[in-house]
Amino acid sequence: MDNSSNSGSMSVAEWAKAPESIMPAADILSRQSGVLESHLKQVNMTSSQIIINLVVMAKKIMESDDLSKEMVELATTRKITLPKGFDLSKPTVDGVNPMLPFTRLFVGSTDATGEWVPNEYSFKNFPGAMRHLYKSAEADVHGLTTVLENLTADAGKGKVVRGIEAAKLKDRAVNAKPRKGNGAVRNYIPLAVSKVKPVAVFTAPPELVPVNEDGYALVTVVQVGPGKYGFCFGTAENADITSLIADGYEFHKERLAAAKAQVTVSMDKVASKKSTSTAAV
């Protein structure tokens, strides 16, 4: 796979007119990710642009066997696992919103060693909106921009949300599993949650920690000593994750540290690694 590209002045809209290779579009998304990380206070406009570009790419990739194969090769290179039977046109693949790994694959940056680092904010907040927009008959940047700009949804208690939040709500209404419990349910996780720095990171089998459509999960933790805690298992993915995370954030927000912006290295300064194997899908 030829990983070279001349995408310095190209847009995804221009790429979509003759999408011969994924890498020019991947270059564009990587640069936009840098903007996303550098300007979190202006995140809404940048996020909309990236989401729309991703959906345009998804539609083009699903129309082309060559682009689909190249996507799998890129996933191998960037060490992103695609679910078995990966298909962006399906609402779920192996229990996962396919837009979640797709976002991890294209939104991020390479670090100083050339390793791909997905943007944590994006894969927690983009996939639901992307899955809703993918169903639109529009397939180009202009058409999808119009759709997203005019999208509204009732968030309850007289509140109306627009754009990305509206797309997420509409997607959740169709694809989310019913939540357990009789308490009041918040409609979305506070944006600020995405900027919180994790206090600990651990690895576990994915099936042990089922995540919801936004990429969040609840886990059971036990105290094993003074200031020491052990992870036991995850909670059912249809638990009321949204409300619990929102409540927990409100309780702890004054003592939580914000995540530092990732260092973005331009892709043309990092030697691309060629894939020598193909991931199973």
Rank of each mutant, 00 (worst) to 15 (best):
E73S: 06
L82E: 00
L191D: 14
N150C: 07
I50D: 00
S109P: 03
E120M: 15
I241A: 07
E254S: 13
V174N: 00
D65M: 08
T92N: 12
P19W: 00
S38G: 01
L151Q: 02
S33A: 10
E63V: 03
V185Q: 06
V96K: 03
A166L: 05
Q49E: 13
Q262Y: 14
N97D: 01
P178D: 01
S136W: 04
M71T: 00
K195Y: 10
G143I: 02
M10V: 03
D2R: 12
F126N: 00
A258D: 15
I245P: 04
A25F: 05
K90H: 01
V281A: 12
F126I: 04
L88H: 01
T203S: 15
G128S: 15
G85I: 00
Q223N: 12
N175L: 05
E37W: 13
G128N: 14
L29Q: 05
S194K: 09
S272H: 15
M130N: 05
K273V: 12
V265Y: 13
Q49I: 09
Y216V: 10
V224F: 11
G230Q: 14
F202D: 12
V201W: 14
V221I: 11
N44E: 13
G8D: 15
R179W: 13
D140L: 01
R255M: 13
I241K: 09
D268L: 15
N238K: 12
V55W: 06
I22W: 10
S64M: 02
K170M: 06
Y216K: 11
S5Y: 08
L151M: 05
M267G: 02
M57E: 02
H252A: 09
V160F: 13
M130D: 07
S136H: 03
T81L: 10
A153L: 07
F251E: 08
G225H: 11
A139K: 10
D2I: 10
Y249N: 01
A279W: 09
L40M: 13
C232E: 09
V196W: 02
S21E: 06
K269L: 15
